[in-house]
Simulated assay, not measured.
Amino acid sequence: MTLTRLLTGAALALGLATTAVAQDKTKVGFIYVGPIGDGGWTYEHNQGRLAIEEHFGDKVETVYQESVPEGADAERAITQMALQGADLIFTTSFGYMDPTVNVAKKFPDVKFEHATGYKTADNVSTYSARFYEGRAVQGHIAGKMTESNIIGYIASFPIPEVIRGINSAYIHAKKVNPDVEFKIIWAYTWFDPAKEADAATALIEQGADVILQHTDSTAPQAAAEKAGNVITFGQASDMAEYKPTPRVSSIIDNWKPYYIERTQAVMDGTWETKQTWDGIGPGMVEIGEITDAVPADVKEEALAMKEAMANGEYHPFTGPLKKQDGSDWLAEGETADDGTLLGMNFFVEGLQGEIPQ
């Protein structure tokens, strides 16, 4: 055998080995509803993606597409990611539910994980966090700190996740301040800084001195800072650039452990369909630093509630509770079941206004 043929054979073998190594990489994709710099929801999902890279090193390749509208655009983006060889795809917004299920049917060998949805398949799992636990803490602080007794709430879409959050915050604000009133503006967006700023400003003009939000940008924080004497809470991410005020605490979504665990399962061949709904106890929901702008006794009470939820001693939806129409819902000491919470389509007694259909 000539030296040339030997070298050619060695080069070919090396090339095949390199290809095999490349193929051994697990490719993990992410579809984001907002930009990775939104400072909130998408930012934290992207932190989870970066955690996968840090944890697995050259065993993984991650790809992402940001600012993907919910609906047909999402289906195209998810399809494209599957065609590009992704082994596992995380779709990170409620409106991606049907597009995810539709694409999953066409790619049975790809694993899909959908955030905040409820539809599963052999290759589709769902995951979400019990954000309402964090809302309970926020409601307690808000009810104690409001001087106008008007709390503004910027709601995104009238889906169970958002309705749960409004109810939880209201229940806990009302417990400590019977005079409290919630004013709700439906923004019909997850991320639109201009819309969110307008909503915050409108609520402040209506007398709100506390703003809660279920939208993803820091625009409401900036509007509150400009107005002065208004407190806010970080949503999905810490939004720490606005502390100690107006941002006095936050709900932080910690997706990192889940993303690492599910990537590992794909690598190990042990991935199975499941529905995950974790809260403060397992660490998927974190409460950001409560600043010194909050009175010490209020901070202590809020942290005690957080601890009670973490160890299972307290459930934010504990009776007696009635629905908005005055009908009975939960008896004294009774707690809401997950099925009701996951499909929540009603306000609790005392909240004003109707849920848009």
Rank of each mutant, 00 (worst) to 15 (best):
R135S: 14
R135I: 14
R135F: 15
A136Y: 13
A136P: 14
V137C: 11
V137Y: 13
Q138A: 15
G139D: 05
G139P: 02
H140D: 07
H140R: 13
I141T: 06
I141R: 11
I141D: 05
I141K: 08
I141L: 10
A142D: 14
A142F: 12
A142N: 13
G143Q: 11
G143K: 14
K144N: 08
K144Q: 04
K144M: 03
M145L: 15
M145N: 07
T146D: 02
T146C: 00
T146Y: 01
T146G: 05
T146I: 01
E147S: 04
E147T: 07
E147Q: 08
E147L: 04
E147P: 05
S148E: 14
S148D: 15
S148V: 09
S148N: 15
N149H: 11
N149I: 06
N149Q: 08
N149A: 07
I150K: 15
I150V: 11
I150A: 07
I150D: 07
I150R: 11
I151Y: 09
G152A: 13
G152R: 10
Y153N: 01
Y153V: 01
A155Y: 01
A155T: 02
A155L: 01
S156N: 03
S156P: 10
F157D: 12
F157T: 13
F157P: 12
P158V: 10
I159D: 09
I159V: 15
I159A: 09
P160L: 04
E161S: 12
E161I: 02
V162M: 13
V162K: 13
I163W: 10
I163A: 00
I163L: 09
I163Y: 08
I163S: 02
I163D: 03
G165V: 07
G165D: 10
G165L: 07
I166S: 04
I166K: 08
I166H: 06
N167C: 10
N167M: 13
S168Y: 06
S168M: 06
S168G: 04
S168D: 00
A169Y: 06
A169C: 03
A169G: 03
Y170V: 06
Y170I: 00
I171N: 06
I171A: 04
H172T: 00
H172Q: 01
H172K: 01
H172P: 00
A173H: 04
A173G: 07
A173Q: 11
K174A: 15
K174T: 08
K174I: 11
K174H: 15
K174Y: 14
K175G: 09
K175A: 15
V176S: 00
V176G: 01
V176H: 03
V176Y: 05
N177Y: 03
P178L: 04
P178R: 05
D179C: 00
D179Q: 01
V180S: 04
V180P: 09
V180M: 08
V180Q: 09
V180L: 09
E181I: 04
E181A: 10
E181W: 07
F182E: 02
F182Y: 06
K183A: 08
K183C: 05
K183S: 05
I185N: 05
I185V: 09
W186T: 04
A187E: 01
A187R: 00
A187M: 01
A187D: 00
A187P: 03
Y188M: 06
